[in-house]
């Protein structure tokens, strides 16, 4: 099975971010950049299918040169190959533009499955996956929490969380999947894996996409409004209950 996994490098979500004073974006100085953690789940899904069916897992990313580090994390987890698409226009591109660039590269690769994270934790947009499915002409299943591929590797049975339930969906291969965190537990890149990844070459190509003009652009970034702490009281159960009920009635007006 030929599996392509899309990867993005994002700021570590554990660490705080610094917004540039002019609000044009975030300050990347000293920022710890890592593989988007939904992409770790996507890589894990690819690796498990490879273990089951054989084949290769190819990682692909579009972004600046530093993105190679995120790709190397995936290689250290056990992916076979990695490629990076760079290009001067990528910086100005929006999510659809990014999907177009990735689609052009993936078209040239054999692919039975294309797997993406359900979103990336920087833009939180969750656009690239389904857009990529459209541009590749593939059927899609997004935010999957369970994945089984039948023995002949012709269809995938997936579970998707929907409001109030679970949708069980059959998707013929080739297909594009985006994955939820509960799909699997990604393996850690092992130390021998890190050594092997170090020796692997990451193929780099330059995007020639001319249509990078963005259809939307970020004009300002601000910190979220800070909530003021309210009253904190130490109370026994009866007093606490009286306080909460009064709050629900008078302030929140839900009682």
């Amino acid at each position: 099975m030929n599996i392509v996994v899309c990867v993005k490098q994002v700021p570590d979500t554990e660490a705080p971010i610094r917004i540039k004073p002019d609000g044009s974006g975030i300050d990347e100085m000293g920022l710890n950049l890592v593989m988007n953690y939904y992409d770790e789940h996507a890589t894990e899904a690819g690796l498990r299918l490879k273990e089951q069916f054989g084949g290769t897992v190819t990682l692909i990313a579009a972004g600046p040169e530093r993105t190679k580090e995120a790709l190397r994390t995936g290689l250290a987890m056990g992916a076979d190959e990695a490629m990076l698409i760079t290009g001067p226009g990528l910086e100005q591109s929006d999510h659809l533009g990014m999907a177009r660039v990735l689609a052009a590269a993936i078209k040239a690769l054999p692919h039975d499955l294309v797997i993406c994270g359900k979103l990336s934790t920087d833009d939180n947009a969750s656009i690239v996956g389904p857009a990529l499915a459209e541009l590749l002409g593939l059927p899609q299943a997004t935010a999957i929490a369970h994945l089984e591929v039948d023995a002949s590797a012709t269809t995938a049975l997936v579970h998707r969380e929907v409001e109030g339930g679970v949708e069980i969906l059959e998707v013929p291969l080739p297909a594009l999947l985006t994955v939820e965190r509960s799909l699997n537990e990604p393996r850690y890149p092992s130390l021998p894996g890190i050594m092997k990844a170090k020796r692997k070459e990451i193929k780099t190509s330059t995007s020639t996409d001319q249509k990078v003009a963005a259809s939307s652009r970020l004009t300002k970034l601000v910190p979220p409004p800070k909530r003021q702490a309210g009253r904190v009281i130490e109370a026994d159960a009866d007093k606490a209950v009286a306080e909460i009920v009064a709050f629900l009635k008078n302030d929140a007006k839900v009682l």
Partner: peptide, 15 residues
């Protein structure tokens, strides 16, 4: 080095 940082982030996550 990049390799050291990978070791650091893997072991940090594991730990």
């Amino acid at each position: 080095t990049e390799e050291h940082r990978m070791v650091q982030s893997m072991v940090r996550e594991f730990a």
